[in-house]
């Protein structure tokens, strides 16, 4: 998943690196506050741990092997801020000392693996756990690993995929990564959704379960984030969603076929002949409402659907396990 040097334009690297600066700053402030001095070396140990986890090969169907990143695991065990620092250091060690992943691309790699991944994992874990007891632990840990790795992969794919559209030479040839979103997203997401995410999930749940079993105490000293700000952020995002109307274009990567034509100059064959999904709320407008209200409503409906889906999944899993136990 590491992006090597020269696949992203230097400006993309700079933007993502700049985006990481406040994250790193907050993370180090938070860790200084929440961790007792005695636990500080845990960060380094966590980084070394994450580095080594990447060395453990797990058997995959078809005779190949894969490895986990471990960011989700560290996020659950030590809190997302600590995980952010640990994974950043692990990436820096790989870039500086092993020539693996670019020095300039470090900001981009850190954004995907040391920001998106641990924080996604943390929120998924928190939401799935709810007030539930121990039984949900494993499922929550698995999902945290699975979803967070895929989120990181998606960000990586999008960063790579926007390069050919944004950076071209005089003759219109791509300067950096030449493959657009229509190639980079499936190329990244299919293996991650099918294989790598499962590996990450199994490792996260397995190791977490083992550590809980062996020593239940003192796992998560950096208590991590409260869930409430997440809800606030969601509500703010819903309210702000009409802002999207102000922008003239469509969101990056969400072009319709005709818009692709105006940007790229031709419509990729697969997209032209691809299927058109008829959403029940076409173009995010609800019939009978003004455009802005419609946008806000679509946002609320979308978020509610996702929340209900999560609740349904966790409830279903919960009931199943309950039944299993009473059967015995």
């Amino acid at each position: 998943m590491h992006i090597p040097e020269n696949y992203l334009s230097p400006s993309t690297c700079a933007v993502l690196g700049a985006a990481m600066v406040p994250v790193w700053k907050r993370a180090s402030a938070n860790v200084k506050r929440e961790f007792s001095k005695k636990k500080m070396p845990l960060l380094g140990v966590g980084a070394a741990f994450s580095f080594l986890i990447m060395m453990f090969n797990l058997p995959l169907p078809g005779g190949t092997t894969g490895h986990a990143v471990g960011a989700a695991l560290i996020s659950i065990l030590l809190g997302p801020y600590a995980a952010s620092i640990s994974v950043t250091i692990a990436l820096a060690v790989q870039a500086l000392f092993f020539g693996d992943g670019g020095i300039l691309a470090l900001g981009a790699n850190a954004f995907n693996l040391a920001f998106i991944m641990p924080f996604t994992a943390h929120y998924i874990y928190k939401i799935m756990m709810g007030r539930g007891g121990n039984r949900r632990n494993y499922i929550a840990a698995f999902l945290a690993g699975y979803v967070s790795l895929n989120a990181a992969a998606l960000f990586t794919a999008v960063e790579l995929g926007i390069q050919p559209v944004l950076f071209k030479d005089a003759s219109g040839m791509p300067l950096y990564n030449p493959y657009g979103l229509s190639i980079s997203v499936p190329a990244m997401m299919i293996p991650h959704l099918l294989v790598a995410g499962v590996v990450e999930g199994i490792v996260t749940a397995g190791v977490y379960g083992y550590i809980r079993k062996v020593s239940g105490e003192g796992l998560n000293e950096g208590r991590g984030l409260k869930i409430r700000p997440l809800y606030v952020a969601l509500i703010v995002m819903i309210i702000l969603s009409p802002l999207g109307l102000l922008a003239s274009g469509t969101a990056w990567g969400e072009w319709g076929a005709d818009e692709i034509k105006s940007i790229v100059g031709f419509v990729p064959q697969g997209m032209e002949k691809g299927f058109n999904f008829k959403s029940s709320l076409p173009d995010y407008t609800v019939p009978g409402f003004s455009e802005h209200m419609g946008y806000i409503l679509s946002g609320i409906i979308g978020v509610l659907i996702i929340v209900f889906l999560f609740m349904a999944i966790s409830a279903a899993l919960f009931i199943k396990r309950e039944v299993k136990i009473t059967d015995k």
Partner: peptide, 14 residues
């Protein structure tokens, strides 16, 4: 400093 501390410990502990 915190990054340097973590980096040094990481190198040793790898």
């Amino acid at each position: 400093d915190i990054f340097i501390l973590v980096l040094e410990i990481t190198l040793k502990y790898i």
